[in-house]
Design a protein around this nucleic acid. Structure first.
Lengths: 127, 127
DNA sequence: CTGCATCCCTATGGATACTG
DNA sequence: CAGTATCCATAGGGATGCAG
């Protein structure tokens, strides 16, 4: 057993903090959806609204603003009529998207395991 | 430019969905903190309360229950007096913790970049 | 088409007193 | 020590009408 009260604290400050930041950035129900939808190339507001299923106009706007603010999305306005706005991932966001691949793999590997764990837990809790 | 309306939809269903699941599981302010704190080995309730700074007793309990429910934490009760309960990561959770490394790296690489982007955005918005 | 403003409801989370 | 129960504040998010 390792001496946890001392050496863990350091790891904690470093790891957990940085991790919490990135998760915060990608949390909320919609950020990921938008990120993935935009990963394939520039995409318009309405296209996003259709692609990210279930998102409301308001939440789409808010999510886009936040991602733009963090430098993950580039917003390009074409002053045409009717107006046209395209959103595109920045390089930083692309890196993020790639880093997320590991997580996706994990999720797919253990999806059923987790569902099963949940079922078991709920059954045990209810009974 | 690729045909987005057709081929993106598939990627979307697969990627975004799995990703959203895992992020949901790790979202909330505390799950990550607890996960990281428990990564170094079995840890007791009170130790967690001290290690995960700022967490309330209530939220610690809720977070622990959720992680246990998803099969990410093992809860072991030692029927001693005073009571002693230890929480330990499951193998699945360890895998998750490792997958998270890529994200941590990303966060640390771009932490300042993002902070800067934010500053710039806010300045532009305010002005 | 893009997106802001408003209203309103619910989930999340903090504080804290109490129990086995 | 390890929780549970309760109360309360706030933030997240849905619906929708209005505007450039």
């Amino acid at each position: 057993m390792s001496r946890r009260n001392t050496d863990v604290s350091d790891q904690f400050s470093e790891h957990a903090c940085a991790l919490a930041e990135v998760v915060d950035r990608v949390s909320g129900k919609w950020a990921i959806g938008v990120l993935v939808a935009a990963a394939a190339g520039p995409i318009r507001f309405t296209e996003l609204e259709r692609t990210v299923e279930g998102i409301s106009r308001r939440m789409l706007t808010l999510t886009l603003r936040n991602l733009e603010r963090d430098g993950l999305l580039i917003r390009t306005v074409y002053p045409t009529v009717p107006p046209k706005v395209e959103y595109e991932l920045t390089d930083v966001a692309r890196e993020l998207h790639e880093s997320l691949a590991g997580l996706t793999a994990w999720a797919e590997r253990h999806r059923t395991t987790i569902a099963e764990a949940r079922r078991a837990y709920d059954a045990k809790t209810a009974g």
